[in-house]
Amino acid sequence: MGFDGCVILNRIEFLESNEPGIYTVGSGFQFNRLGMQCSNEGFTGLEFAGGIPGTVGGATYMNAGANGQETADVVDRVDIIKNNGRFQTLNRIDLKFGYRSSPFQFMKDLGAIVAVTFRLQPSGSAKRRLQECLERRRVSQPIGERSAGSVFQNPPNLEVAAAELIEKAGLKGFRVGGAMVSNIHANFFINSGGSTSQEMLDLIAIVKEKVDQKFGVQLKEEVLYVHPYCDDLNPNRDK
């Protein structure tokens, strides 16, 4: 299937900190790098970002999170550009975030997130917590494999993770062509070699169906689809 369109590489990669704990960061800045820098400088709130691939803009758009922390916890304001070319600054109090959700996913006139300002608190344990997050990720996730991270959200109101449901359904290692459920973490689907986007879509659909059949739980994707043929796969997003 591929993507029949223009993909823009975001190079808005600046970082400014004019007072302790306040970081204004370009949306193209690597989220992993930001988490490591803030934590190593003794500020807490973004330790979980260590080891997470992607950008500050993407993490804000998705409200990325892990280990009891999420991006929205420390967002102070967000600078955006609209489709008409106008810039706007949105303060945290005006932004309603949810689990892996942000208001930016529903803005029809959003052009792009330009920069995000984070407000962090000093902590003597931030560096240690960063290292704990990195080690936990190293032993529990397929680091180095080609994936889009967690495929499904954890089901609400259930004390069980999506990965556990997929594993208990016997789907670790299950594959469709080159698309495969990771043997390390069942909520990571990897390109084991030569996978097409259609194979990955088919794998996601099969896993959803099998988990529903076995446990009566309908998994909801954490990933978002960007291909126009997949618009109906984002039922809770404005088109």
Score class of each variant (00 low, 15 high):
114 V>E: 06
145 E>C: 12
123 S>D: 12
118 F>P: 04
115 A>M: 01
150 S>H: 06
143 I>V: 12
125 S>G: 08
131 Q>L: 13
131 Q>F: 09
126 A>E: 06
100 R>T: 00
135 E>A: 12
141 Q>M: 13
151 V>H: 01
126 A>H: 10
138 R>V: 02
130 L>G: 09
139 V>D: 02
123 S>E: 07
145 E>L: 15
135 E>S: 07
105 Q>S: 03
121 Q>K: 15
119 R>C: 08
138 R>C: 01
120 L>K: 06
146 R>H: 10
145 E>Q: 15
148 A>Y: 02
114 V>A: 05
107 M>V: 09
152 F>Q: 04
109 D>P: 08
126 A>N: 12
151 V>I: 14
144 G>T: 10
137 R>H: 02
153 Q>S: 06
133 C>A: 13
119 R>P: 03
134 L>E: 10
103 P>Y: 02
125 S>M: 06
128 R>A: 15
106 F>T: 13
109 D>A: 10
110 L>N: 11
111 G>K: 01
151 V>P: 03
127 K>N: 12
134 L>V: 14
153 Q>R: 14
125 S>V: 15
145 E>T: 15
112 A>M: 04
131 Q>V: 07
141 Q>L: 09
142 P>G: 10
111 G>M: 03
115 A>W: 00
140 S>R: 09
104 F>D: 09
116 V>E: 06
111 G>S: 04
101 S>P: 00
150 S>D: 09
99 Y>W: 07
107 M>N: 10
101 S>F: 02
135 E>Q: 10
110 L>Y: 08
110 L>G: 15
108 K>F: 05
127 K>I: 02
147 S>W: 12
131 Q>K: 14
127 K>P: 00
106 F>P: 01
